[in-house]
Design a protein around this nucleic acid. Structure first.
Lengths: 349, 349
DNA sequence: GTGAAAGCGCTAACAA
DNA sequence: TTGTTAGCGCTTTCAC
C-alpha cells in the first residue's frame, strides 16, 4: 500500500506517468516540458503544461531530489541558551526571520526552521549531512564562535548573523556594531551628555563591539570612562530589569543611557518614568535595532537602525555563493542613527 | 556527475551500501539494523550501528521518503496581508512559532516555515500536495475563514490558530476569546471603571469574540454600551497609533481601555503618558496576550494571558490526529487574567 | 523533437 | 536471522 490509510478511496496523486499517458507522450517529455526545456516543441510543451495544471499536478520532491541529488531547502537555526534563557523573544529576531523567509522564497528556497540548544550546535551539522538542507543560516552568534568555526571546517555552507571576529572561518553578516556604538555615543555627547551609562552584555561579540564604539567616542571627545557606568545586563529579561533597578538604586551619577538593544532601552525608560524622571529632559536614551516598538514607545526612541531587509538578502546571497563553492567575504552592513524624542530638546549645561 | 562540483575530491557521502560492504551484510540488514528492527540479531545490530556512527553516516531523506511515501515535516504558515501590512511583527507570533518549533521537535517533526500572501492561501495547498509536508499549521486566521474551509475540504491536514467559527470545516485551536474579553472588562468594571474604550479590529474573528465578551460584561453590569468607545484599530501599526491619537483628540469621556492586544495597550499607555495622564490613576488599561513586554512596560500591564506553550502542543496534537485520519475537535484554551499595575490602586468614585 | 532505459538510495515483501 | 529483489517518481544520457 502506498499512501497513508487516510481514506478508502485512496486517490493516488497524479504523477508524470498519468500526464504522459493522457498526452500520449513519454514521461521524459513531460519532465522536460514541465521544466520548460527548449528541446520540446513549444506546442507540445504548452499542451503538457496546460494538462498538468488542469490535473492539479504537483511534483514529488522526494523523487526529484533523490534523482537530481539536489534540493532547495535552507535551514535557519536559532540557537537558544537554556541557562541564560536567551530565547528568541526579541522582536528583532522575528523581523530577521521574516526577512529571511522573504529572501529565501524569492530565490526559490524553502525554509526549515530549527531551534537548537546552543550547547549542541553540532546538531545543525546533521541537518546538512542528512541532505535535508543545502545550507544553513544561523541567527545569533552568541558566544559560540569556536563551535561555529568547527562547523565551517566541516565544510558546511554556513552563514551567521553576528559580528565579524578575528580568526573567523565562517561567513558572517552583521551590522557595523563598532560604528553603531560610536554614533550612538557621539550623538549623546553632542546633546551635551557627559556621563553615559552603557547597558549590555559585553560577553556577546556584537555588544562588545558596540561598547568599543562607545569607548572610542569617549576618547575622541576626551571624556573619561567610568566602570560604574557599564552595566552588564543580558538581553532583555527579568534579570536585566533587576540589574537596571539596582543600578538606579545606587544613585550613580549619569545623564544618559546607551542600551545595546531597544528592548533594554524601552525598559530603562519605563523604569525612569516610574521614578518620575523624564526622558529626554533628565536623561537621554539611545537604543539599538530600531524595532517597531522603538517608534511606538514613549517617548519615541532614538536608536541605531539595523536594516533587517538588507540583512536577509545579504545572508542568502552569501549562502548561495558558499553553496556554489565560493568563498564569500563576511559582510558588515551600514547602520544609521534614527533620531527621535528620547534624545531631543536637550539643553547644553 | 552526482554531487555539486564543490571540491575536486568529491568525497561521496557514505551510504548504506558502504556500511553493508564493510560489515559484510546486505543493505537490507543495514536498513533494518539502523531502524532498530528486532528481526536483526542484537550483536549484528549493534555492530552496524557502531559502524554507521564511526563512518558518520547520515541517511538520505529523499530516498527514504520516496520509498516509504512518508515524511516528517510540518509546514507552518504565517499569512501576511499586503494591504493592511499585518505582517508578523507581533511578538506574540514569535512566541507561538517558538512554541511550535519545540512541540514539533518533541514529536520528531521538522518545521518548514512559510510566509504566504493571504490573498493566495491556496498556495499552502501546494506544500501538502507536493509531498513536502505532512500537514499544515497556520498561524493567524485573519479574515480568511472561507479560504481555510476550502483547504480543509481538499482534505489537507490543517490546523489553524484562531477563533472557532460557525460552519467551520477546519480544526482550530485558540484561546477563549469571549471569556477573555469578558474577564478583562469585568475586571475593569470591578475597579470602578464605567466608560471603557475598546481598541481592536472587530473584523478579525478573534477580536470580534473579545468584543462580544466586552459587550456581555456590560450587560451583566447593566452598563450602557457606547459606539464612540469602540475604536476599530488594526493590530499594532502606525495606523493604529494614528487612530488612537484621533480618539484622544476627540476628548471622548472614558476612564479605561481594553485593548485587543498588548501592543495596542502599551501604545495607548505611552500616548496617555505623553499627555501627562497617569495609568492607572486616570485610566485603567487591560491588554491581551501577555507578551514579555507586558510585564516590562510601565506601568506593568494587566492582561489576558494566552498560554503559548500549551497552544503549540495542542496544535501539534490536533494535527497528528488529522494526519492519522481522525477528526479532532477544535479546541478552546483557557485564559487567565494577570493583574499588574495598570489596573491597580484604583479608587472607586 | 522525442522516447527508452537506467538508476538516484532506500525499504519491505517474500524467500531462504 | 538474513538476503534477494522489486520498485518509490523522477531526470537524463543516449539513441533514433
Amino acid at each position: 500500500m502506498t499512501g497513508t490509510t487516510t481514506s478508502k478511496i485512496d486517490t493516488k496523486r497524479t504523477q508524470m506517468a498519468d500526464i504522459a499517458r493522457l498526452a500520449g507522450v513519454s514521461t521524459a517529455t513531460v519532465s522536460r516540458a514541465l521544466n520548460g526545456s527548449v528541446l520540446i516543441k513549444q506546442e507540445t510543451r504548452e499542451r503538457i503544461q496546460e494538462l498538468a495544471r488542469s490535473l492539479n499536478y504537483a511534483i514529488n520532491f522526494s523523487a526529484k531530489n533523490l534523482r537530481s541529488g539536489d534540493n532547495r531547502t535552507i535551514g535557519v537555526v536559532i540557537p537558544y541558551d537554556i541557562n541564560t534563557r536567551q530565547h528568541i523573544s526579541d522582536p528583532f529576531f522575528l523581523g530577521m526571520l521574516g526577512s529571511l523567509a522573504d529572501a529565501l522564497t524569492d530565490q526559490g528556497y524553502d525554509l526549515l526552521l530549527s531551534r537548537v540548544d546552543a550547547q549542541h550546535l553540532d546538531e545543525v551539522a546533521k541537518l546538512y549531512e542528512t541532505g535535508r538542507v543545502k545550507g544553513i543560516i544561523l541567527i545569533g552568534q552568541w558566544r559560540h564562535h569556536d563551535q561555529l568555526n568547527e562547523l565551517a571546517m566541516r565544510r558546511i555552507p554556513l552563514v551567521v548573523w553576528g559580528a565579524q571576529l578575528p580568526g573567523q572561518m565562517y561567513c558572517s553578516v552583521g551590522s557595523d556594531n563598532r560604528m553603531g556604538g560610536q554614533m550612538a555615543t557621539e550623538h549623546l555627547i553632542q546633546k551635551g551628555c557627559k556621563r553615559i551609562a552603557f547597558f549590555g552584555d559585553v560577553n556577546l561579540p556584537e555588544v562588545a563591539q558596540r561598547y568599543e564604539g562607545y569607548v572610542l567616542a569617549h576618547h575622541h571627545a576626551k571624556l573619561p570612562l567610568e566602570e560604574a557606568l557599564r552595566v552588564a545586563t543580558p538581553f532583555a529579561s527579568d534579570l536585566a530589569q533587576k540589574m537596571m533597578i539596582e543600578f538606579l538604586d545606587q544613585t550613580i551619577l549619569f545623564d544618559a543611557v546607551f542600551a545595546a538593544s531597544d528592548l533594554l532601552a524601552i525598559s530603562i525608560m519605563g523604569l525612569l518614568a516610574a521614578r518620575g524622571l523624564d526622558v529626554p529632559r533628565d536623561y537621554c536614551v539611545v537604543g539599538y535595532d530600531d524595532v517597531d516598538a522603538a517608534s511606538h514607545c514613549h517617548p519615541p526612541l532614538t536608536t541605531i537602525r539595523q536594516s533587517v531587509d538588507v540583512a536577509g538578502t545579504q545572508m542568502v546571497d552569501c549562502l548561495e555563493q558558499l553553496i556554489a563553492g565560493g568563498r564569500p567575504e563576511s559582510r558588515v552592513l551600514k547602520i544609521a542613527l534614527t533620531e527621535r524624542q528620547s534624545t531631543r530638546q536637550r539643553k547644553f549645561r
